[in-house]
């Protein structure tokens, strides 16, 4: 039996009828056509489908659609301000933290959740926060650099 849900994605309200077994990932991609959220494993192991749910980074493949009723979701499409990139996106681009780019949306959103809570994380804090996001191309080093650079910028720390 389909259930009605009402929730916001990137500040836009959506009302949908969803089946109980549908995941947030599936409705983002298939119903709302927000393809920036990637399906890497569908079992919560890779982090490619990370979105922010009320500001917290979650694997959207492990969240049932009915659970998001009344809540706020942010996806990668909601991060830039028009054509102006979010500082984290800009930092990923400039630091060479993107190769194939499949893990990138999830990485960036996990980084956002971290930086919102802890504006100037240490390398270890970055590693801890992002350990659920896998990447096969970059070896992670430049991802760490990119996140660190945003952190420093925010606190005015000079590298």
């Amino acid at each position: 039996m389909k259930q009605p849900i009402k929730f916001t994605v990137n500040e836009e309200t959506h009302e949908l009828l969803v089946r109980p077994e549908q995941t947030l990932l599936d409705i983002l991609r298939h119903e709302l056509r927000l393809m920036g959220t990637k399906k890497g494993c569908d079992t919560g192991d890779c982090g490619a489908c990370t979105v922010l749910l009320d500001g917290t980074a979650v694997n959207s493949c492990l969240v049932l659609a009915i659970e998001v009723n009344g809540r706020q979701v942010k996806t990668i499409e909601g991060l830039a301000d028009g054509l102006e990139l979010h500082p984290i996106q800009k930092s990923f681009v400039e630091h060479g933290a993107i190769q194939c780019g499949f893990c990138t949306p999830g990485m960036i959103l996990t980084a956002k959740a971290l930086l919102d809570e802890n504006p100037s994380p240490t390398e270890n804090e970055i590693k801890h926060a992002m350990s659920g996001n896998l990447c096969r191309c970059t070896g992670y080093t430049k991802i760490i650099d990119a996140v660190k650079a945003v952190g420093k910028e925010k606190t005015g720390e000079v590298s």
Binding site: M35, E77, I98
Partner: peptide, 23 residues
């Protein structure tokens, strides 16, 4: 020169279209 990849912005914004993104 140390330059970002040409497709990096598309990948950072979710615009890059991977196979499963085509419908």
């Amino acid at each position: 020169r140390r330059l970002p990849k040409p497709d990096a912005i598309a990948k950072a914004t979710g615009q890059a279209e991977f196979i499963d993104d085509f419908v």
